[in-house]
């Protein structure tokens, strides 16, 4: 369990949030032209990183807004929080 600093509401208990999985998976621009392999890649294949991972979170029991997070999955340490649409931090 950890505290999450919602970019809209401030620091709240993790219990208020819902994890949304890996971030920056772009929806295919032309879905009708996708091969089965490309669909599988988009829908199912995940990096599932041990280390710093970019992921989406939703403040489900708060402002209900989505945002992004860089978090070290080996020790649950949050490295950065940034809004949807922003580029992931490089450091």
């Amino acid at each position: 369990m950890f505290l999450i600093n919602c970019p809209y509401c401030g620091e709240r208990d993790q219990q208020e949030f819902k994890a949304g999985g890996e971030a920056h998976i772009e929806r295919p621009k032309q879905p009708t032209e996708l091969s089965d392999d490309e669909w599988a890649e988009y829908l199912f294949m995940r990096k599932n990183i041990k280390g710093v991972q970019f992921e989406r979170w939703n403040h489900a029991h708060g402002c209900r807004k989505w945002f992004n997070m860089a978090r070290d999955t080996s020790n649950d340490e949050i490295k950065a929080i940034y809004k949807i649409g922003e580029k992931p931090p490089t450091q």
Partner: peptide, 13 residues
């Protein structure tokens, strides 16, 4: 828990 983690510890709730 609903988040990805390798920490071998989960949330209290």
């Amino acid at each position: 828990d609903d988040y990805i983690s390798y920490s071998q510890k989960g949330s209290h709730q």
